[in-house]
Design a protein around this nucleic acid. Structure first.
Length: 866
RNA sequence: GCCGAAGUGGCGGAACAGGCAGACGCGCACGACUCAAAAUCGUGUUCCCUCCGGGAAUGUGGGUUCGAUUCCCACCUUCGGCACCA
């Protein structure tokens, strides 16, 4: 039952109390003074310094580290302050919490700026880091700054280089010549993950990429493809798991070896001679008998070999055109299929059929083997191609229930289930729509292929190895040396780090300054000591961020990438928070990295981050993505200056569902500012504006006090659950609600009672993770409790106090709420039923009849069917 | 085309596990205070009607149920990812 509105009978005191103005000034809420004061004290007292403590359970809370652009964005606040609030909550719950911060400091913007204005990236980065540290401190977060790591510091990138060498030694880093994605604006190659969208643009700058044939360093991420598809034991959002699964895109099937056939049918060549094996991958080995032609990618190495003289010109022309097109966009949507006949033939190994070999750009060199068997009867693409070029179509799967009385023209490729036909020994075998071994037809054919030695079960992935070479200066050098006699060898580990030279020139040529440096690249071969050349490319910065969570453990440790004692205590990361845009980039790279290090014996366990939560995005007030060009950017510094950090933190947590994000609302923040100020007033001004009818102070009734206590514990229960579940918006709204109740209780004279004091204490403790400064100020200076509130235990819910004794039950009659009755919370079903039937409203609807059905949902409602 | 997420007042959003739809806040309206405004405080605020009462409503249409924002089926819209992947 809600608090009785006794105060309605009492007139507000019109005249302000004489001392009020003075008091107000003394107690003025001034975050601009108060917040820096506490920030300085917390830091001086090392309040947030996290040290190993075996007596407590540990909690490693991590939020994605920022790039030091030089200005903290509202998006950083949105990502970090709720993470901070939760880390603080975990700390109050009794965990020894590590919540570190650092900078992902290598990267292109600093280098591009250097080309423009000549300021060295090292200098600019240092300045930006300094500025962002200050801005980050203004959040009042519990970062342990003694663990700060900056990826562009030599003491950091020494180990980034060291990791490269470990991967190289394991055979996981290798060099390969291939057609790679090149961003003409960033002047560097990119990994596949870093090329986005329909127009295949650079993830960083938005410029469409082009293809270039280059010799580059790769990490063998594909070796871990299967393991990366396994998310056992980690609590990650389904969305991220799905994105990663789709990105890796495993498909099961078979690899089958075809052979080239002699040019003209009657001339049988001796076994083996002049016959090239052609390996293909197929997910449908059950349709092998329907393969009526083959298609090679124009880049396939066998194309020149098999092309007959009379087709040479056309093939060359097509290849040239395809090469040109790949620079623009070969994979345009719904493009009509094109191709040319090579003049060459292959033998289908299952039925010895002699089938023509075509080239077409719908077959990609980068997937499978770059060659396919074409089964036009059961593949839409092959069907379209066969139709266009009038190639034979042989059905090998017959639908079990054939509605058409046809045998006439086939109108489309048949993809469904059925029975194999025209397939030699397999005629009559059932085929369904399952993939891989789950499909009986596929499974039987694979067994047979293996027995016959024609092919074998095989798995293919869309996933590629990670291209990590970047033709840029501002990154960790790839610690490799090339010698004409001994090839590529790692820099000896005792010579790490390979330092970036500082004396470089910035030229807008698109060439890395490292390459243009007169002497830097000269180094003795680690094997023979003769003059050799350093690799002048640097590493993808995602390499730096793949292990930063390890460097935080001991950022200045020099005997290894991290101190093992710290590792053993803190790892793995318990809660990781950040944007979902990294789903197939950082979040995939770091999992790969951890697994590779595990296999090197450096890390333990299968996963680096146990729990992941993604925040959404803050949009501009115009509901568009924030950008300088749109002029809709919200600057947190300005807001902190105007409202104080606590208000900004509170609003950030309040205004949207964290995982969804929402547009910013400059008026909306006033509500949070009002809340913070009203809490301030509630704690600093205990007087009520009301007097009892007799003119004396009001003394709260037992009922008022009991109701207050109930509300406090109900709120505590809810806020606790919300913290556990990352529901930050309802934490703040529950606190607002409780504050409103406390104002009412104050008016009803509850101030000074034990219940009031308990309410105040619990209120500030619940508030502390959200608004750490005001909570500390009120706790120490107004409640005079021992400093610091951030070292207090999270309060316990008193379930007995939280319980309602009388509840109001809505009464539904035929699904509509017609009445409400008050019953004791403990009332039995019979008692509730009796109370409902006694209601005049219910009687009216019953019109003297018995209800057909009475459903009592205990504590919730009563539903009658009449 | 495939995969995923989401559609609730003027707005952001709430509703623990099928049980009172719209908590909390913004905005708006009215009132108090003020010479006035701002701030502050109070009251109200889903829509509609023949307004003591009643009806409709959580993207649309069905279904299950005493009861559906919640579960099931189909569809629409928006956003994100993938896209000739053999």
């Amino acid at each position: 039952m809600p608090v009785e509105k006794k105060e309605t009978a009492i007139q507000p005191v019109a005249e302000a109390r004489p001392a009020k103005k003075e008091t107000k000034r003394d107690n003025a809420f001034n975050p601009r003074e108060m917040e820096p004061k506490w920030q300085a004290k917390w830091e001086a007292d090392k309040l947030y310094r996290s040290v190993i403590d075996e007596s407590k359970p540990k909690h490693y809370a991590l939020t994605m580290l920022p790039y030091p652009s030089g200005d903290l964005h509202i998006g950083h606040w949105y990502a970090m302050t709720p993470s901070d609030a939760r880390a603080r909550y975990m700390r109050m719950k009794g965990y020894n919490v590590l919540f570190p911060m650092g900078f992902d400091a290598f990267g292109l913007p600093a280098e591009n700026a250097a080309i423009k204005d000549g300021v060295h990236p090292m200098k600019r980065t240092a300045q930006n880091v300094e500025r962002m540290r200050k801005q980050l401190r203004s959040m009042g977060a519990m970062f342990d700054w003694e663990r700060e790591a900056v990826s562009s510091d030599p003491e950091y990138y020494k180990w980034t280089e060291w990791f490269f060498i470990q991967l190289f030694k394991m055979g996981l880093a290798y060099r390969k010549m291939s057609a790679v994605d090149w961003c003409p604006n960033c002047n560097t190659t990119l990994a596949r993950e870093q090329v986005w969208g329909d127009d295949r643009h650079c993830e960083r700058c938005g410029t469409p990429v082009i293809k270039k044939d280059l010799d580059q360093w790769f990490f063998k991420t594909t070796k871990y493809a299967d393991e990366l598809l396994n998310f056992d034991g980690i609590d990650w959002p389904q969305t991220v798991k799905t994105l990663q699964t789709n990105w890796i895109d495993r498909s099961e099937g078979a690899s089958v070896i075809f052979h080239t056939a002699p040019p003209s049918p009657p001339a049988p060549l001796p076994q083996g001679e002049g016959r090239h094996p052609i390996e293909i991958f197929t997910t449908r080995p059950d349709t092998l008998w329907g393969a009526t032609f083959m298609v090679f990618s124009p880049e396939h190495p066998l194309v020149d070999e098999i092309t007959t003289p009379e087709n040479k010109a056309a093939v060359e022309e097509y290849k040239a055109q395809a090469a040109r097109q790949s620079d623009i966009q070969r994979g345009a949507v719904d493009k009509e299929k094109t191709g040319v006949f090579t003049g060459g033939y292959a033998i289908n190994p299952v039925n010895q059929a002699r089938i023509p070999i075509w080239i077409a750009d719908y077959v990609l060199m980068t997937y499978g083997t770059g060659a396919i068997m074409a089964v036009p009867a059961h593949d839409e693409r092959d069907f379209a191609f066969a139709r266009k070029y009038d190639l034979p179509i042989v059905p090998v799967i017959k639908p079990e229930v054939q509605s058409e009385a046809d045998e006439g023209e086939i109108e489309a490729a048949y993809i469904g289930d059925g029975v194999m036909i025209n397939s030699g020994p397999f005629n009559g075998t059932k085929v369904n729509t399952e993939k891989g071994r789950k499909n009986p037809g596929i499974s039987k054919v694979i067994d047979w292929l293996e027995k016959e030695g024609i092919g074998k079960e095989s798995v293919n992935y869309r996933y590629r190895d990670w291209l990590i070479s970047r033709q840029r200066y501002w990154g960790a050098p790839i610690p490799m040396i090339h010698c004409n006699a001994h090839g590529w060898n790692p820099v000896p580990e005792d010579q790490l780090p390979v330092m970036l030279p500082e004396d470089v020139e910035w030229k807008p040529t698109g060439e890395s300054p490292l390459k243009l440096h007169p002497t830097w690249k000269n180094a003795p071969c680690p094997v023979c000591g003769e003059p050799a050349t350093r690799e002048t490319d640097t590493m993808d910065t995602f390499m730096c961020s793949s292990w930063y969570h390890l460097r935080y453990l001991s950022p200045h440790y020099d005997k290894g990438p991290f101190d093992e004692a710290e590792y053993n205590y803190w790892m793995p990361v318990d809660t990781y928070t950040g944007g979902i845009e990294h789903a197939t980039m950082h979040l995939l790279y770091t999992r790969f990295f951890h697994k590779a290090l595990r296999d090197a014996g450096i890390t333990e366990g299968n996963e680096p981050m146990l729990q992941l939560r993604n925040q959404g995005m803050v949009l501009g007030e115009d509901n568009e993505k924030m950008s300088k060009s749109r002029g809709n950017v919200i600057a947190p510094d300005v807001l902190v200056d105007k409202y104080g950090a606590d208000t900004v933190r509170a609003y950030i947590m309040f205004f949207a569902r964290w995982e969804m994000g929402a547009p910013w609302d400059s008026q909306g923040i006033e509500g949070s500012a009002r809340w913070v100020r009203r809490v301030w007033t509630l704690f600093t001004d205990p007087s009520t504006t009301l007097r009892s009818a007799q003119g004396g102070p009001i003394v709260a009734s037992d009922e008022v006090k009991k109701n207050l206590r109930r509300k406090v514990h109900q709120t505590l229960r809810k806020v606790t659950r919300n913290f556990e579940q990352f529901e930050f918006n309802t934490i703040v709204s529950s606190l607002m609600e409780l504050m409103n109740e406390m104002y009412k209780a104050r008016e009803a004279g509850a101030v000074g009672s034990g219940e009031w004091k308990e309410a105040q204490e619990i209120y500030l403790k619940m508030m502390a993770p959200v608004t750490p400064h005001i909570a500390e100020e009120l706790w120490t200076n107004y409640l005079h409790k021992p400093y610091s509130i951030h070292q207090q235990q999270w309060p316990q819910v008193d379930e007995a106090a939280a319980k309602e004794d009388v509840i109001e039950l809505p009464v539904q009659i035929n699904g509509k709420v017609r009445d409400r009755i008050n019953v004791p919370a403990e009332a039995t079903e019979e008692e509730v039923r009796a109370a409902v039937l006694a209601s005049a409203v219910v009687q009216k609807y019953l019109e003297g009849r018995e209800p057909r059905k009475v459903i009592v949902a205990k504590g919730k409602l009563v539903s009658l069917v009449v």
